[in-house]
Write a protein that binds this DNA or RNA. Structure first.
Lengths: 339, 339
DNA sequence: TTGACTTATGAGAACGCTCTCAATAGGATT
DNA sequence: AATCCTATTGAGAGCGTTCTCATAAGTCAA
């Protein structure tokens, strides 16, 4: 079953040296048409396929890149998709690793990099680091090139591609402020994650920029969860200092909030406006279609691959950070406040 | 940057032959504790990582499997996930190929198999073949092992794992019949795809089994699309011979139908009951939560990997087909017909 | 002390390819 | 006719492992 046909078998059939066959495979220009044809015919006859592993060994590259990320997360699929497509179009195969399994310790994409199976890596690591940890800086010089996704977008020494949370959240806040909302709440996510931290931070910055005071009593950490948002919304609606709008750092929490608002007999957007973040497919279909932020995930994938290819081509090139802009999708869940 | 530290560097530092280092790496039992320690220390000192490519060349396996599938499809993510997890837990890495890009021609997963980059493959190919095409049979003996996903579940000569569409659809039909529905329509998908063909076929078989006549005027090919289902539902509601229930071969079409029903001022399930297939996240959140079929996608991934591993261990073992059972999730979109 | 046997280690081939350098042939130049 | 070029091909080393086989050292019975 296994026993492969090698370059030497082809050479023998074609009556040339194995070197010549290799040249034909690699389209060396100084092979005569005649020998080329002969070799080609032999290859076809034997149904020869080059052994990519052997080639990888001598060339010291495999034409494989790794995508390392939290594949449990729904928002990761579009990125997987676009990375697969654009790496394939450049004749690279893609290996997929989950940060949940192989990559057990926080930083051990190092392992993936050091065993020479892949030429480069795209690393989507959710953990928020206020600045680039020294161990990562050290890694840079020692292992195959890597590009961070949705992280280190403002760190000049890293290669990174991602969605600009600050720009995105600002869109949401500006939208609400333009509708005359002044009491705007936020349900934010786990702040040990990049998105959790940045979206909350961005929210407060955007409020200040708009001249709206930040009110801590309207800020709640919903841990990205439907349930948490649901309960907190019920609680808020009991009190009398309720917000007129809530920005939710992901759509799931917005959906939870909406459920709670309806359960209280109130309505979206008449009583409370809601803005989400992610633009899940669901958000278009739910009862009150959700106004939300659509991150350009496909672009993130495409641009990451581009950047990685550039680095692969010229490993000495200075690091680059590419921050992509999200889009505000206005649907039915936002309106002017009732008062 | 690149220049790796090899087994020979380690050998030199440890003062042994490279062979010995190799033995330590592979946990050969007859190495003395002393030399083992010495080598281990040298490895740690040099920060040595085995070169998996070189190992792959001599061992003729790479510890990598390929998952080939329609990654544009949402329902593919859970499979990706579980395949990644379970292959990782067996020390296999996973390569992901899209049937849309690399694999342009119908059958050229052959390419992936023949270049020796992967030890085995999981192939998720949507095209419906009434029987196994001879070229696939031929492939079996020549390239690395493969397991089909959601295809060839009833072909004794193939290795296959998948969801049993016939069982699944029967659950839906039995549910509707038990509620006293007798005029049951179907929105089915593209019948050149496996699921498209089988679910329609299964639907008719299930009706007959339940003693309900098959009415072609209630059958419509919605091509899996929201829009098509929407329009057809409007059309059906104009006529007077409307169904009391519709089975939709995917949730998306059920959502489209629901939209149309509401637009006509009618209600689900009072006027028409709807059953979907897929159990999308969306289906739980929409206005009338959808009764649907939940395919055990995670299991499909896990079992595929298991089967592939078995084949890898013993390539001569007889082919096996594993048909998994879906589950009926009853929510609010089905009820007894009004009359 | 010797030979047989076991055990721990080393030397070197092999995996299938690419790449460097040498060799050959034919044509142009002197 | 001798020399030099150029264009094409061949021979062989090397990539970093594993694996086979040989070797050296140690153990034990005679």
């Amino acid at each position: 079953m296994k026993r492969s046909v090698t370059i030497k078998d082809v050479a023998q059939i074609a009556g040339v040296a194995h070197t010549t066959v290799s040249r034909v495979i690699n389209k060396d220009s100084r092979i005569t048409q005649a020998t080329c044809d002969r070799v080609r015919r032999a290859m076809k006859k034997l149904d020869y396929q080059p052994n990519l592993i052997a080639r990888g060994l001598v060339r010291n590259r495999t034409q494989v890149i790794a995508l390392i990320g939290p594949e449990v997360a729904n928002f990761f699929l579009p990125i997987i998709r676009s990375v697969a497509e654009s790496s394939a179009s450049r004749d690279y195969a893609m290996m997929l690793f989950s940060t949940n399994t192989w990559i057990k310790e926080a930083m051990s994409f190092e392992w993936v990099a050091q065993n020479w199976l892949v030429d480069g890596m795209l690393v989507y690591n959710l953990i928020h680091h206020p600045e680039v940890p020294p161990e990562i800086i050290k890694l840079k010089s020692r292992i195959s090139p890597f590009v961070f996704i949705n992280k280190f977008l403002r760190e000049p020494e890293m290669n990174a591609v991602g969605v600009d949370n600050y720009h995105a959240v600002n869109l949401a806040v500006e939208h609400l402020v333009a509708l005359d909302h002044r009491r705007i709440g936020i349900f934010y996510g786990d702040v040990t994650s990049v998105d959790g931290f940045e979206r909350k931070d961005a929210f407060e910055k955007a409020l200040r920029k708009a001249g709206v005071p930040v009110d801590p009593s309207l800020e709640f950490c919903g841990m990205w969860r439907d349930e948490d948002a649901f309960k907190e919304t019920l609680r808020m609606l009991e009190g009398d200092a309720r917000p007129t709008a809530i920005f939710c750092a992901n759509d799931i929490m917005a959906i939870g909030a909406m459920r709670a608002i309806r359960e209280k007999g109130l309505s979206v957007p008449r009583d409370i406006s809601l803005v989400g973040f992610d633009d899940l497919e669901t958000s278009r279909y739910i009862d009150v279609p959700l106004t939300t932020i659509r991150p350009p995930l496909a672009d993130v994938g495409t641009r990451s691959v581009e950047l990685l290819m550039d680095v692969l081509k010229d490993p000495t090139r200075p690091p680059q950070q590419i921050a992509l802009h999200a889009e505000l999708i206005v649907r039915a869940s936002t309106a002017k406040p009732a008062g």
